[in-house]
Write a protein that binds this DNA or RNA. Structure first.
Lengths: 313, 313
DNA sequence: TGTTCATCATAGGAAAAACCTATCGGAACT
DNA sequence: AGTTCCGATAGGTTTTTCCTATGATGAACA
């Protein structure tokens, strides 16, 4: 036997309102016979008569009344589906799950979240802070919509877009403030404090110093940039941090900052998401917001950063 | 633009369950392309992408998840419509509004309601007791499903079916118990107590006695059979009541009963409903139940009724 | 690195459903 | 009786849905 269709319920509802086949049909912009047939088919499908037709009027049966109440609820729910979609289409709406690496999150997020709320109010932002590898895994599993990491990630299945570049600065004990800035090679002679394994920033720092073989483990890896800077302030060694971390991390420790000469070390921060993500257009907009947030941060912080020494050239 | 259809929602729901176009299509007993097309059409109607398709898996988007929850609710509600109808079809169910005239209601209803509950449990019986004219009006307005009245009513738009016939018996003061039973003509010499205007039973009594002109109003019309019998017991006059009323009404008054000789007065009680009523088949069943109830009443009461005097013939 | 496999999308024609115009039939009003 | 109103029915047309066949793409495999 036939199935109940949505049209039938719409026609049924119109007929309950008008109590008249012709007028209900007009209301539905179809001919009267079309409506008659659909109502009849609905009744046959149900096996129950919904209307009592007399020459004078069309009236709901007892069952029809009960039926009509439920139908109204259903039609309203379906209309709401459309509304929901229309809203989701216009303003960006719903959950947006963003992953961020630990060496970026604490510095970028306050500004970023503020901007996101301003530009896309109604967006429900969820943040996940963890290492790049986990972010990529969660992204691929569909548990994140996008992630902010250091590029490149070169993961097939993901696309990446650059957001900004950030240079690394040298953090030394305050007492070393006037000492010459070492070259990358010179760094090898110094006690360089690094983040734990798994942080991409660790690898970036190591790569800059051209260490060839695995570093001797000395048990001094820090779990955050904050820890590293505190250790430097205690005179244990030197470290690198990204520009963006400067205002937050160097405020409360007796350290001095220095830029490198020549090619300064740096990394590119970017956004990644699944190639197949239907959010892609939205994510491009989000990426713009992130760029603006980073710009804003940079401008606020310029005065805190050390001037770049003029190269000897 | 297209409208959302139930098919689309059904297909959508299947796809959320299987996460695989081919298997979902199987589940819906259609081909994979048919399902693909419908899902795509749904997405286009909404203007929102519901699924993220990758080579490995088909996953709901954030919006899709929200959408899916609502869709599930809607589909369940639609299925319940079918269930509701199936129930209504099988056992007789829902409201049944019965009107009954006052000279029948008090005697028939206790037994009838009991029987109805026994035979059609789940039937929600509403009773309305009032005069025939009002019953007919309410029936025509659709505020009653059927009525139990004295036939004929001869109302175009209504059909009638006979239920049972009931004879009228004479109620006299207990002191008149051995007096001869008067003929219809003899009744005219006696003080006959009647119900108020509007009761069909009044007209039936008057008609039996062959009164030609309007009766002189003497302010003694009773509002119920019970009142009339009490008045008879007080020696004010005589009256007629239907057999069915005997057990209830003559228990507590000093009156005697007598049957008439020759053609006993009587009336036919029947059921009426709108010609157009879709309940007609059900009402025929109900009518049978009423007949059974009346039979049962008659059997219970035989011993209380006076024997019919042998005609002089 | 090319091949195969799995999976979803697209195309074109066929089947089914929905619709429209015209007409019938019954009830009510004149 | 004639007329009007209104819903049901019939026949043919348009629209929608579906199926088979095939394309396209990315993943797994050799």
């Amino acid at each position: 036997m036939m199935n109940i269709t949505f049209k039938q319920l719409r026609y049924f509802e119109a007929l309950t309102r008008h109590g008249h086949f012709g007028r209900a049909a007009d209301d539905c912009s179809i001919s009267q016979p079309a409506l008659s047939v659909q109502i009849k088919e609905l009744e046959e499908t149900l096996g129950v008569v919904l209307f009592e037709r007399s020459a004078r009027q069309v009236r709901l049966t007892g069952f029809g009344q009960e039926f009509a109440e439920r139908v109204r609820d259903i039609l309203r729910a379906v209309d709401e589906l459309g509304d929901l979609a229309r809203l989701a289409k216009d303003r960006m709406v719903g959950r947006l799950r963003i992953g961020v690496i630990p060496t970026v999150a604490p510095y970028l997020l306050p500004t970023l979240i503020h901007q996101l709320n301003a530009v896309h109010s109604g967006l429900d932002v969820h943040i996940r802070e963890t290492l790049t590898q986990k972010l990529i895994a969660e992204l691929l599993e569909g548990r994140l919509d996008t992630a902010i990491v250091a590029l490149p990630v070169s993961e097939p299945g993901l696309v990446e877009t650059a957001l900004f570049e950030e240079k690394f600065v040298l953090v030394r004990s305050a007492t070393d403030a006037s000492a010459p800035v070492p070259s990358p090679e010179g760094m090898r002679e110094m006690k360089l404090l690094l983040l734990e394994e798994g942080h991409c920033f660790r690898d970036q720092a190591v790569s800059f110093c051209n260490f060839r073989s695995p570093l001797p483990r000395d048990g001094l890896d820090g779990s955050s940039l904050s820890t590293l800077v505190q250790m430097v302030g205690a005179g244990i060694g030197v470290t690198l941090i990204p520009e963006m971390a400067v205002p937050v991390e160097t405020r409360s420790a007796p350290v001095s900052l220095a830029r490198f000469q020549g090619d300064e070390p740096s990394r590119t921060i970017g956004m990644i998401w699944r190639k197949t993500s239907p959010l892609a257009p939205r994510l491009l907009e989000i990426a713009d917001v992130v760029r603006q947030a980073a710009d804003q941060l940079r401008q606020q912080n310029t005065h805190l950063l050390p001037a770049r020494p003029v190269s000897a050239a």
